[in-house]
Structure formats: structure tokens, C-alpha cells
């Protein structure tokens, strides 16, 4: 599939960039480079437990929300209830773009509105209930909480704008 290939490419590019920068750094200053590896390792071991918990939460949440339920909720009759449900579902489900957008494409074929998909995809990308425990270790609870709430509002505004532009509103 084309979609998965483009992700493979972006990962490859990141590896090439990292390798080049690392080699340049190694040639420029051995001591600094080994210090950088120590920094990398320290940061990783500090955050690894939170990441593990996030992965577990994501796996459980994603398995609890089956595709069939998504389709049933998001392809609903009422525009507004579908949009709000989409924003809610998008907030709790975390999935990489290469799963979320093909799913949006599928939903579009099943008759979901563009504004509903906008609410869903934007909240998937910006609002993270399952990543919240991780986010609060970095930002602190109040800031993480408010950032997510503001992102939710932004997603709804985007959905409304998309609705107007695609003739789904008013």
C-alpha cells in the first residue's frame, strides 16, 4: 500500500539525518558526542516507564473501540451529534495518521460528512486522553489539561469551518 510506504520513507529519512549528524558530531568532537549519548540514554530511561504505561493504555483503548462502532457513531444522521461524538471518539482514541486517515476515507465512503471527519481527525492528532499521563509529566497537570481543552475547541471550530466550506452547514 502506498500509504505505508510513505511512512517507511519518512522513518528512513530520519535515520539518514540522524546518522549524518551523528557522524559529523563524532568527527568534530568525540567527547561531546559521547556526552550526547549519555544525555540520550538518561532522558530515555527517565521517561521509559511513562511511555510503557501510555502504550498499554493506547492498546487497551484502541481494542475497546472497534471499527464497527466508529462507523456506526460517525455516519449518524444528525450532523451535530455526529460531530460531537467524533470529537469525543477522536480525543480518546490515539492512532497513528496512517491508520486514522485511511479510516476517515472508509467513513467518507460510508456516508460520513466532511465536518465529522474533520472533528475526528483533528482531535486524534491534537487531543490525547490516553497520552495525558505522559503529557502531564512534561507540562504539569494544569497546562496539559488546558492545552487539551483548547485543542478540543480548535478542532470543533475547524469542523464548523469545513462544514461551511463543503456546503454541509447550515
Amino acid at each position: 500500500m502506498v500509504t505505508i510506504r510513505s511512512r517507511e520513507w519518512s522513518v528512513l529519512i530520519i535515520y539518514i539525518i540522524t546518522a549524518v549528524l551523528f557522524l559529523v558530531s563524532l568527527c568534530a568532537d568525540r567527547r561531546k558526542t559521547s556526552a550526547s549519548l549519555k544525555v540520550a540514554l538518561r532522558r530515555f530511561t527517565r521517561i521509559a516507564p511513562s511511555f510503557l504505561v501510555m502504550l498499554i493504555l493506547v492498546a487497551v483503548v484502541l481494542s475497546l473501540i472497534p471499527d464497527q462502532l466508529l462507523i456506526r457513531v460517525l455516519a449518524r444522521e444528525s450532523k451535530w451529534s455526529a460531530t460531537l461524538a467524533a470529537a469525543g471518539l477522536g480525543s480518546v482514541s490515539i492512532m497513528p495518521g496512517f491508520i486514522a486517515f485511511p479510516l476517515c476515507g472508509l467513513l467518507l465512503e460510508r456516508g460520513a460528512l466532511f465536518m465529522v471527519l474533520a472533528a475526528f481527525s483533528t482531535t486524534v492528532m491534537m487531543v490525547g486522553v490516553a497520552t495525558f499521563p505522559l503529557e502531564r509529566t512534561y507540562l504539569g497537570t494544569p497546562l496539559a489539561l488546558i492545552r487539551n481543552m483548547v485543542s478540543l475547541v480548535v478542532a470543533i471550530i475547524v469542523a464548523i469551518a469545513i462544514g461551511f466550506c463543503f456546503g454541509e452547514l447550515p
Binding site: 539525518i17 540522524t18 540520550a40 540514554l41 530515555f44
Partner: peptide, 14 residues
């Protein structure tokens, strides 16, 4: 992840 953290390390030092 290896890339992300190696890059962060390099960023931190340089």
C-alpha cells in the same frame, strides 16, 4: 525512538 533521543542528545550538547 533511537533517532529521537540521539537527536535530542546531540541538540543538548551542541
Amino acid at each position: 525512538f533511537p533517532c529521537v533521543f540521539v537527536l535530542i542528545g546531540l541538540f543538548d550538547v551542541w
